[in-house]
Design a binder for these strands. Sequence first.
DNA 1: TATGAATGAGACTTCATTCAT
DNA 2: GATGAATGAAGTCTCATTCAT
Lengths: 208, 208, 208, 208
Amino acid sequence: MAESSSQSAARTRRKPTQARSLERVNRILDVAEQMFVEKGYAATTTKAIAAQAKVPIGSLYQFFPDKEAILQTLAEGYSDELFSYFQSLDTPEMAEISLADYVDKMTDGVEQFFSQHPGYYAVFMEVQARMPLVNEADDARLIQTIATLLPKRNPPLNAQDYHAIAFIMVKAIGNFMWLSLGQSPDFRQRLVKETKRLTFNYLQSYFS
Amino acid sequence: MAESSSQSAARTRRKPTQARSLERVNRILDVAEQMFVEKGYAATTTKAIAAQAKVPIGSLYQFFPDKEAILQTLAEGYSDELFSYFQSLDTPEMAEISLADYVDKMTDGVEQFFSQHPGYYAVFMEVQARMPLVNEADDARLIQTIATLLPKRNPPLNAQDYHAIAFIMVKAIGNFMWLSLGQSPDFRQRLVKETKRLTFNYLQSYFS
Amino acid sequence: MAESSSQSAARTRRKPTQARSLERVNRILDVAEQMFVEKGYAATTTKAIAAQAKVPIGSLYQFFPDKEAILQTLAEGYSDELFSYFQSLDTPEMAEISLADYVDKMTDGVEQFFSQHPGYYAVFMEVQARMPLVNEADDARLIQTIATLLPKRNPPLNAQDYHAIAFIMVKAIGNFMWLSLGQSPDFRQRLVKETKRLTFNYLQSYFS
Amino acid sequence: MAESSSQSAARTRRKPTQARSLERVNRILDVAEQMFVEKGYAATTTKAIAAQAKVPIGSLYQFFPDKEAILQTLAEGYSDELFSYFQSLDTPEMAEISLADYVDKMTDGVEQFFSQHPGYYAVFMEVQARMPLVNEADDARLIQTIATLLPKRNPPLNAQDYHAIAFIMVKAIGNFMWLSLGQSPDFRQRLVKETKRLTFNYLQSYFS
DNA sequence: TATGAATGAGACTTCATTCAT
DNA sequence: GATGAATGAAGTCTCATTCAT
């Protein structure tokens, strides 16, 4: 039922290398994710998370210094996964495909990711509200990656340009795929299409 | 039966018609906005709001049924203002200006609005996380308006198309101008420019 | 059963002027005193104090910002009472009585005070350990008073001398009367006698 | 029946005869002393002590049954040292020196001891508050020793007298030298002088 | 014997909301 | 209507101690 979470433990008090601990941490993370999605971060108590995860509250606090660290770890896990996906686009073949295909691939990838991670929305809403810096840093990593991918396409722009373009691209696709989550299947489909159009026309204006 | 508060409206318990009450409500709203921005919604107590606004806590609860109603009222106020701005664009002259100018005007308008309302960001982060429906409803109003404006430009599209286009437009501009808030002045400028380009190229692909 | 405590409210969140509040504060103070004596400060919980005093825990925290404030208020109450006693010794007649009688009066006064306030010991042990400054300040007040009383007896010493003498006097009497509390009645009697002898011989060495 | 720990003795679970164990116990004691002084007994956790002493927490509990035992062992160590000092005064020569010199020697000895053991103050504040009996017992040992030293000086008093005198003497010197710890160097000097005067005049009234 | 992860009772404190005055 | 003292459920987190390995 719960998606196995293989988050990179950050702000984790103790890096659990033992099998049982690792399992516990993941159980906590999975339960927390689910509860954050269902009732919101504030309305979810550490006690409830521990109980649901069948972990003593004391153990929970052995792995996470406080409630926020759970949220943060969750966020970082998502970020890492998403980042990995984008990095996987950085292949020789990708530099050859058409701009339209490139945009399609990215958009579809993000769309899929969001679909498969129902917690992302809830978690990032909170994260953005309470730890914007962390979040920014994570997105920046993504933007950076894209910014280095772009120059492989023709026109000679400077680094600043590439950064701005990557920023718009990442945020536009991210935001709309995110927004599409709450929409009806039909409109969602449409949104994917429009997002591709939006992004493609934008990029085409640069990469003639 | 008793004092049913019309859920959609400003959830104010009593619409204060007396001068003093109105002033108090405004003071509460102003103080709350400031505190939400400074310390976040959760960390702001109703008692503190009341104290700062020099309004007895009991009176505060006479105007607002609960803490969330304050946030909601704030959000609605913003929404109304922004909505008014967009409505003001619906004039005969506006239908005549170029697409590029149209996009410019909208983007600049939103940018200005966000600049002048520093609370918007903080408030909406919370609102989106805890009352997405309200927010959606508000944006929908905006999108609807834009959707009715668009057909005044050439190509014969159906209502669904106009809705989708308006959605993308409103959300894209809204989102990027919002994101620009936290950026350095330079990058912020750039973001305005890129947002215009993004939106313009998108619209142009429809209204060539 | 409980001694009525008329402590000067310090570090009290709200100075309770209303009859009911005042009674509640006193009930809290009385209960706390008793529990501190019986089980020690650390082992006494705010919840238990509130329950025993039949005051909701929330109300307790309306009067006292935290657990320590209760202890502090208790300490200050004692200090004030003891101080009052010493001030009452500053009368024209007192300046006339013999040194021996003077020492007797002081010692007996302190002895009585300690006997009548069984909480003093427990409370001050804690206070001294966790808020030495407060305690010092209080004793200093006492010492100051004595230091201004002494010059009324012959020999011309400087202010520093009077301070030192008063310090020794106050601390010696205070300490031994305090120590006597835990002793058998017989030895306690003896201790009173010896304390008088100790103090008297010391003072006599100055005031020939 | 199993491992009954003789309550009066150093409440160490196991008297560590092995070199490594002894070293560990000492390291625990040293670290604990320092931490008690710095942060207070309550604020010092057994885990922190163990970590700082580089001893596994499990081992710590092998040497000490509980946290309080560490404090107690520390207190007993001090007491023993101080006791040794006083015993060293019980020599033929000491019986010959003047009363004034005798008092000087004792006072200076105690003063030095306190100066060299900064932990004494902090530790005893706690000990007195939570284990007064232990403390009393320790001082009693001291008083007894003094009481047997005193008769070597003239006047024929009974055992009870000697005990009372020794009690006053030990406690007066002890208390004032203790109080002097927190004072300014100047006043501290003065306090030493006054303590000698206090004690000397008292003793002289008996051994004139 | 040595280790340190695991435990969970319970401590302190907060704060939205009510309702007697 | 206006006021603000009163309420107490509930939250987060700590830490002495144990015991399986």
